[in-house]
Design a protein around this nucleic acid. Structure first.
Lengths: 203, 203
DNA sequence: CAATAGAGTTTATTTTAGTAAACTTGTGAA
DNA sequence: TTCACAAGTTTACTAAAATAAACTCTATTG
């Protein structure tokens, strides 16, 4: 038999377009073994030949997208799961306390932010308390706008919440609003003292 | 020339393993045009032949995973982006105000929850205010435990925050804690009046 | 209105993925 | 030990993807 080049060889011969192999095979095998399935069982579930599955697990082929889709169906997982590294979540069993007034300060011209739980990175939410210095819509050059969703709770004082597609609305102590942060949004104080709010952002 | 079956035909002949085609081609073309690139430019960037790109965009082939990886690199996108339907996020341009005391009540023996922003579903975070009725660790049968991460802010009164892997800690008004919610966690009031806290959960 | 060139498609061919069947390896029963 | 067979790998082959080159279509220019 004429030996065919292995995947590795083929890839190495084309270094310009080498991409992190993503260890697809390893990942698939891992999932299969976790569920205690044999190649034959996965073959029945997916309609992919046993031999093909073996090659995929050993990185002897670069499966076509059609095959990858069958795999996903058969292994009962969604696409991101297959590729995104089995990232043990960074929060595992952790907690982070922030005492009153001891957050990380982030002052700006219009807002005075105090970042809470700043010692844990890579978390799903970012909570911060903000003293709203701004009194006027015009103090902002532009709508504030960013990815994700935002929750706002008025802790003290009262504010006006401006948002791109809605009329401005007054919010008093204890009122809250949940909104799409890609929509322009701006908050100004209405009370004599600067209002204080809690903000939580999630991407 | 002998005509070869189209992708559609091939798929249709194997209905058992038919999966949503995911309109990969459409998606790739969309991205390419957005960036104002020609097939030739993408070819140079990815190392994939112009003809192959054309076929991918027109769903005439089911590209191999190696090709998909090159595509991702060349188009400057990550994998999920390529596959996850350009899902208009459900929050698009929306906001939801909850006035003080007007959330959706959810009383339990130990906690009295008031769900905020309950009219928007499928959001990234779930915020609620809770009056902590419990005074004692023993009022709970089991650790409370669920997926995701949780942020807690004490709005009034003082509490003790018990968590599975840490010593109990006293939290007073304005203190906050961010933690992994899969770790057992329980809160009890310490002050004469029931403490009130804000909770935000993200999955 | 040729002639040229840019962008995309199709053809013809090579290369690689996908499969059935043969083979290997390991395990346990008789 | 030998037989059976179950799980996985490799072989030999077929089907399909990947490519270069030829082609089509538009738009532009002299």
């Amino acid at each position: 038999m004429v030996s065919r080049p292995s995947l590795e060889t083929a890839t190495a011969s084309d270094p310009d377009h080498f991409v992190e192999p993503l260890e697809l095979g390893k990942r698939v095998k891992e999932i299969r073994l976790t569920k205690g399935w044999t190649l034959e069982e996965v073959s029945k579930r997916t309609g992919i030949a046993r031999s093909t599955l073996s090659k995929i697990e050993n990185d002897q082929v670069s499966p076509s997208f059609a095959i990858v889709q069958k795999l996903i169906g058969g292994l009962g997982m969604d696409l991101p799961q297959l590729f995104v590294e089995a990232q043990e979540h960074s929060m595992a069993g952790r907690r982070d306390i922030t005492r009153y007034g001891e957050g990380e300060p982030h002052p700006t011209a219009t807002y005075e932010h105090e970042l809470l739980s700043y010692s844990i990175s890579r978390k799903k939410m970012v909570p911060f308390k903000t003293i709203v210095r701004a009194r006027n819509f015009s103090e902002f050059k532009e709508w504030v706008r960013h990815d994700g969703e935002e929750f706002l709770l008025v802790l003290s004082g009262s504010v006006v919440f401006y948002s791109e597609f809605y009329e401005p609305v007054e919010l008093n102590e204890g009122d809250s609003v949940y909104y799409d942060a890609t929509m322009g949004h701006i908050v100004v104080s209405l009370s004599p003292e600067d209002a204080q709010i809690l903000w939580v952002v999630a991407r």
